[in-house]
Design a protein around this nucleic acid. Structure first.
Length: 721
DNA sequence: ACCATCTTGTTTTTT
DNA sequence: ACAAGATGGT
């Protein structure tokens, strides 16, 4: 392959990064500046020009999707499959190292991964045993605390508890860690921390990996947390070179421990060179200008300004909706227009700050008959029925797995109630043994009443028989047998309604997922089942069906990162929503919200609509929000306001006053009121509803007299009296 | 064990 | 508003 192919078609800065000498480098890559391209070409360059072996390359991403894309594109570029190259997520790669050296890491061969839900359940059980009030100490918050400590690389012994509260948290952390260790369970944060400690404590092992991974590449570096940074630094050692790619302006995960300052730390710790990618190939000049202006309001920046040699494009349209229904109606009508212009549905996206906002939009889309797809939400492998089935499989592969035991001991109901269970739990605690063995012991010691004893023995027998029966089977047969014989299938078949039917389907889907699963060739699992179980925990299970269906894409601003769409709607851009209420309180959060806004805006390629509602039903209550401060930060020449202006001309106390409504606004917002400027006197018109008083009063007026059926809800803001 | 009624808490998400 | 979890009664 001709080397020039690798740099042809790249701009100067991209080329500089791809063809850089072997040194530590920071590529500050703005939105839409072609960072993945640079990473992929850099890998190819290393192999073609620097003659690096695939074995010496180590590339880290945050999501499986990104890892997969990188691998595919590297293989496309090199026009051959590459084996032996490590490309994966922080968790995936750490997990791989732990599997390979589970003994040195003090983990059983069949160790399993706890997801957030398992983690919370585990903590809830511990709190009960420790007699701690769940009300005062929500398990979720404790799980959060523990993960945060692990993200900082802190074990219980590293923590100074200064007050009673922290002492309690520390006690739970200790108990939790104990329970996990005994059960052979690791949570997500543990995977990273355990791997870090393993490498730190095993110099031979560390040297082995350091000597292997000469070329390290890291994507989305602004999202790394403390332990990830330390892990990378450890692996890099003195001799390896690392290219990190990131954008401080797109750091939106500070709330879960990401340290934006890791970029600056990297520059110092690794004496790295910086290359800026500022040419944007995605958005119109207008969108970029507005985005640049917005982000300039943040104080702590490395500095970067996106530019394009493309078109100016249309101005950003800002729509002031009366309420969230009006906002949804606006979005839908604009999508309709877009569609009529011969464009595709899948090319537009609606972005919102929180998931609850999707509801009204969904309803509007449904009403208008527009297909949509919502990102996020419940993942396949996190569904109740799937987790039940997986728990059986986990218990079969590792009897110590207390989390799995707790989950399935009485699912489906087999007459093992709370009393029997607490008996088993007590025994397990006193003897410090896994629940499984405690259950056996309790039976042997005849501590249980007849009926309970039979139930427990039947359960033990079931699991042991399944274990025997399935070892020789194919993975999908293993799953099938387990799901059927455990009684799970029957239980969900008996469940009535749409829900039950869906669950049965999901269980079948799980069996078929087992059939399609191919164990990774270069990773060593003791059995296909082991591999599959790890896969279910580390991969969200998305990315199959209806991905390519032509539908409007709806998602939160967070999940939009990395994506692009010709037409983008950002909705609910109001004070209190975005920036969110709570971001006001903590320091630094406001800048993160602004970055989130920047991320949202830079998703748009051709046209961007931003809307805010003057009133919105939130948690059952009517809230009035002013437009987001972010809107004021956009240069006037980049935006165009669409709004129905209401002006109050008389006191409202009487319930009769007039407002004027301009025609242009009506037409732009989808209302068609003809060619003339309309002066509607609310007092004289048909007032359908009137509520509130003072500065924020609501009037609903029917505009029947102009020949439309639109019901307009107007909010009158009174300046004086 | 199971159902009806209540209380409660609601940013963002990946692994 | 609304859903999930807790509580309490049969």
């Amino acid at each position: 392959m001709d080397v020039s192919e690798l740099i042809d078609g790249l701009n100067e800065k991209q080329r500089e990064a791809v063809a850089a000498p072997l040194q530590n480098m920071l590529v500050l890559a703005g939105a839409g500046s072609g960072k993945t391209r640079v990473l992929v070409h850099r890998i190819a360059w290393l192999m073609q020009v620097e003659h690096a072996s695939a074995y010496s390359i180590f590339a880290v991403t945050f999501t499986n999707k990104a890892a997969k894309e990188m691998r595919t594109r590297v293989e496309e570029t090199l026009r051959s499959p590459v084996g032996g190259m490590w490309i994966g997520t922080f968790h995936g790669l750490s997990h791989r190292i732990l599997r390979a050296h589970h003994r040195e890491a003090n983990l059983p061969e069949a160790f399993q991964i706890l997801d957030t839900d398992d983690q919370v359940r585990m903590i809830r059980r511990l709190l009960k045993a420790m007699n701690i009030d769940e009300k005062k100490w929500p398990p979720k918050q404790i799980a959060w605390y523990i993960s945060a400590r692990k993200d900082e690389g802190q074990r219980p012994r590293d923590i100074q508890a200064y007050d009673v509260n922290e002492q309690l948290l520390l006690r739970v952390y200790t108990a939790y860690q104990d329970a996990c260790d005994r059960a052979g369970l690791v949570d997500f944060a543990e995977i990273l921390l355990r791997c870090y400690e393993l490498l730190q404590q095993q110099p031979t092992l560390l040297r082995h990996y350091q000597q292997r991974f000469r070329h390290m590449l890291v994507d989305e570096f602004q999202d790394t947390n403390s332990i990830q940074y330390r892990w990378l630094k450890l692996l890099a050692g003195q001799d390896n070179t690392m290219m990190i790619v990131g954008d401080d302006d797109q750091s939106i995960y500070g709330w879960r421990g990401a340290k934006i300052e890791n970029i600056k730390r990297f520059l110092e710790d690794f004496s790295a060179e910086t290359i800026r990618l500022e040419q944007n190939y995605r958005s119109t000049a207008t969108i970029l200008k507005a985005s640049n202006a917005l982000i300039q309001n943040n104080a702590e920046r490395m500095g970067k300004s996106l530019w394009t040699d493309g078109n100016q494009g249309e101005p950003i349209s800002i729509y002031a909706a009366f309420n969230e229904l009006d906002e949804a109606r606006f979005v839908v009508s604009k999508i309709r227009t877009w569609l009529n212009g011969g464009n595709a549905l899948q090319d537009c996206a609606i972005l919102y700050r929180n998931n609850a906002q999707s509801r009204v939009l969904e309803e509007a889309m449904l009403q208008e008959g527009l297909k949509y797809r919502i990102y996020g939400g419940m993942r396949f492998f996190e569904r109740q029925e799937i987790k039940d089935a997986l728990a059986y499989l986990r218990l079969i592969s590792n009897r110590q797995d207390d989390a799995a035991f707790e989950r399935v001991i009485n699912t489906p109901a087999r007459g093992i109630g709370d009393k029997t269970l607490s008996h088993i739990r007590d025994c397990a605690r006193n003897e410090s043994m896994p629940l499984w063995y405690a259950a056996k012991a309790v039976i042997e010691q005849n501590h249980l009443a007849g009926r309970a004893a039979t139930a427990v023995s039947r359960f033990i027998e079931l699991v042991e028989q399944l274990d025997d029966k399935i070892t020789e089977l194919e993975l999908s047969e293993q799953a099938k047998t387990t799901i059927e014989q455990s009684g799970l299938m029957a239980m969900y078949q008996a469940e009535k309604g749409e829900k039950g039917r869906a669950r049965v389907e999901n269980l079948e889907e799980l069996i078929s997922a087992c059939g399609q699963y191919e164990p990774p060739i270069d990773e060593d699992f003791s059995s296909p089942l082991q591999g599959f179980l790890a896969y279910t925990s580390l991969e969200s299970g998305e990315g199959q069906a209806d991905e390519h269906e032509d539908a409007v894409q709806m998602m939160t601003l967070h999940s939009a990162k990395g994506l692009e769409f010709p037409l983008v709607f950002m909705v609910g851009v109001e004070e209190g929503m975005f920036p969110s209420q709570q971001s006001h309180e903590e320091s630094g959060r406001l800048e993160e919200e602004r970055r989130l806004c920047y991320v949202g805006m830079t998703r748009a390629m051709e046209k961007l609509y931003i809307s805010h509602a003057e009133s919105r039903r939130l948690y059952g209550q009517e809230k009035h929000h002013s437009p987001s401060r972010f809107l004021r930060e956009l240069p006037e020449e980049c935006v165009e306001e669409i709004r129905i202006k209401t002006q109050v001309s008389r006191p409202v106390n009487s319930g009769r006053f007039s407002a004027s409504v301009t025609h242009a606004a009506f037409e732009d917002s989808g209302y068609n009121l003809g060619q003339r400027v309309l002066h509607a006197k609310f007092g004289a018109g048909t007032v359908l509803n009137y509520e509130g008083s003072g500065a924020q009063s609501r009037i609903q007026v029917n505009f029947d007299d102009v020949g439309t059926k639109w019901l307009v809800t107007a909010y009158a803001r009174l300046q004086s009296f």
